[in-house]
Simulated scan of single mutants.
Amino acid sequence: MDKFNLSRRESLGLAAFATGMAAVPGVASARSKKPAVDFVTDIDFKDPKWTRDTYARIDGDIDPTKEKCGWIKGKAMGVRPNEKIRTLFGVEGFSFVRMKKLEDGSYRRMLREIVFYTDLETGEVMDKWHNPYTDETVKVVPIANDPFNFTISEYAPEGPSYGGLNTDLREREPFLQDWEYGPNGTMILNTGIDLMYPNALQPSQWPRESAGAMNRVSEHFIYVVEKADVENPELTHIPHIGSWSRITPWLPWMLMGQAEGHISYFTHFQTIPEGVAGLPAHLVKAARDMDEKWLSAPTEDYGPSLSSLEVYAREQTPAPVPEGWEPPKAPPAPAGFPPRKD
């Protein structure tokens, strides 16, 4: 597992990134082959078609005969008033993406992803977890989205609909992203989305799982790539490393109800050019034990594309409510400090 432990500096791509990515297996061979599709390589931050093609090459491999494997690892923390932030469990998983080019030049991105929650001490995948806020042991439910598809075009995406629950969709506008040049021949992309939409787990039906009638979510990514890779007309996938953060309500399987507080994810991610062979063995086993399908990308477009909460609502059942149960309470506010005497 040591080969998957990136330092903070490495995860931000600020230390000899160009040298490191040149040594990634598969990159050199990819550069020696003529690509199966055409794409824009002349860097222009104000060109929606360059943005479309570059983001598609990062998010997947625009050669439809190939699939891209991505790996993610980090931690999830509990945040409540009047106490320090508490690291609760590890987060580790992977995804497989396939790209299909459409007639108008857009790309249909087809993805399967699975993310497990892991023990902080051993790193092993958990099926049960002791909740320190409620002092009870709960069943752990991984993130398992099949599929999560969307179209990458020269127009900005409307944002996920989450099965029709999110109606706050963006107006059609050119697809431009927040790019900047970094040190050592790198480029840095910042993306993110902030949402508030109706919860698929309404408190009336899911009193222990639901954090409330609405979901407030903030999700942000940082990608670091080589400028030379972006400009390379033979490279259909752009290798990258980066970070993902997410602020989200308590996870439903924690059985926190409408307790004050939320979960904060902080992770790093990267391309795994070797695919399944390059993933940690314990993750591959855990995914295979669920279904072999998690070890490859979809070959066809299908749906609906749902978030983990919508999947939870479809696949799980509400937990029993013990007599007299109420959501755990955060500690009281500390007493105020006495006024200073000058």
Score class of each variant (00 low, 15 high):
M1N: 14
D2L: 13
L6D: 11
R8T: 11
E10V: 06
L14S: 11
T19V: 11
V24E: 12
S32C: 07
K33G: 03
A36D: 04
D38K: 12
D44S: 07
D44V: 03
F45A: 03
D47T: 01
A56Q: 01
A56V: 02
R57V: 04
R57H: 06
D59V: 10
G60V: 01
I62N: 04
P64T: 09
E67R: 00
K68V: 05
C69G: 04
C69M: 05
G74D: 04
V79T: 06
K84D: 10
V91M: 09
E92C: 03
G93F: 00
S95L: 14
S95G: 13
R98A: 06
L102Q: 15
D104V: 06
S106I: 05
Y107I: 08
L111W: 02
V125H: 02
M126A: 07
M126Y: 00
D127L: 08
N131E: 04
P132M: 01
P132K: 01
P132F: 00
E136G: 05
V138G: 03
V138C: 05
V140I: 12
F150C: 05
S153P: 01
Y155E: 14
A156W: 02
G164I: 00
N166M: 10
L169G: 07
W179S: 00
Y181L: 13
N184I: 02
N184D: 15
M187C: 10
M187A: 15
T191R: 06
G192N: 07
L195V: 12
M196V: 09
Y197F: 14
N199Y: 02
P207G: 03
R208S: 05
S218R: 14
Y223M: 11
V224K: 07
T236K: 09
H237P: 05
I238D: 02
P239K: 03
P239Q: 04
P239F: 05
I241E: 08
W244I: 08
T248M: 13
L255D: 02
H268P: 01
H268L: 09
F269L: 08
L283N: 02
V284K: 00
A287Y: 00
K293N: 01
D301M: 05
Y302C: 10
S308D: 14
L309D: 05
Y312P: 02
E315I: 11
Q316V: 06
A319D: 07
P322R: 10
E326H: 14
E326C: 12
A330R: 01
R340S: 08
K341S: 14
